[in-house]
């Protein structure tokens, strides 16, 4: 269609493009990916909830989980979700420098979150709670770890996007990538809310 020289089809293409903006389609495609990710986390949450009693006589979460670090990580991730939104706002005003600064702040907050999570895992392993200790800890590390892997992937993805924007500037294409990334980052914060609620708060209450 696009290669057809006919005027009629040219008009048609332009018309169609107005209704099916490729960036809109990419955004919808990413929504569908996020929903599949929701389903994956649903299975991990279900596994954790079902197995949470299965400590096999070993240490329980209530004995080992320390809320101080978790509270700090929660606010780090919540704030980074906010700053990634501010980055998108700056992008729509074509303030490329501001946008990169907000993205870097988002990344630093995300890195702080990961640092605390790795520290927490090391502390747990040191206290004798590993992936192999009991059904409870297997489910715990798989669920919390999967979220941590998502954050790690997000960090590298964001660095790649920043490098691309520095090289190519803000185009429809790179703008779409930043929009999709911020959607992903908000999603990770939403998943963390339920991790905090179901894994941590319900365990220490």
């Amino acid at each position: 269609m696009a290669q057809s020289p006919a005027h009629g089809s040219d008009h048609h293409d332009h018309h169609a493009a107005g209704h099916h903006d490729p960036q809109d389609l990419k955004l919808l495609g990413f929504w569908i990916f996020l929903v599949t990710d929701v389903i994956m986390f649903a299975t991990l949450f279900a596994t954790f909830i079902v197995l949470r009693g299965g400590t096999d006589g070993n240490v329980t979460g209530a004995e080992l989980l320390e809320m101080n670090g978790i509270i700090i990580s929660t606010f780090l991730l919540l704030t980074s979700s906010f700053t990634s939104g501010v980055a998108v706002l700056a992008m729509h005003q074509n303030k490329i420098k501001q946008m990169i600064i907000w993205l870097v702040i988002t990344g630093l907050l995300g890195a702080g979150f990961l640092y605390l999570e790795v520290n927490e895992f090391l502390h747990l392993i040191h206290e004798g709670a590993t992936l192999q200790t009991s059904a409870y800890w297997s489910a715990f590390f798989t669920l919390v770890g999967t979220h941590g892997v998502h954050v790690t992937v997000g960090l590298f993805w964001m660095i790649a996007i920043i490098i691309q924007i520095v090289r190519r500037g803000l185009t429809d294409d790179t703008k779409g990538k930043v929009t999709v990334f911020s959607l992903y980052w908000h999603f990770l914060d939403a998943v963390w809310i339920f991790l905090l609620s179901i894994v941590y708060l319900m365990e220490v209450m």
């Binding site: 919808l28 929504w31 996020l34 599949t36 389903i39 649903a42 299975t43 949450f45 279900a46």
Partner: peptide
């Protein structure tokens, strides 16, 4: 799409 996802989520979690 999101509503569909939440439906599956609730089925999996509540059902389990």
């Amino acid at each position: 799409t999101l509503i569909f996802g939440v439906l599956i989520l609730l089925t999996v979690v509540v059902g389990s």
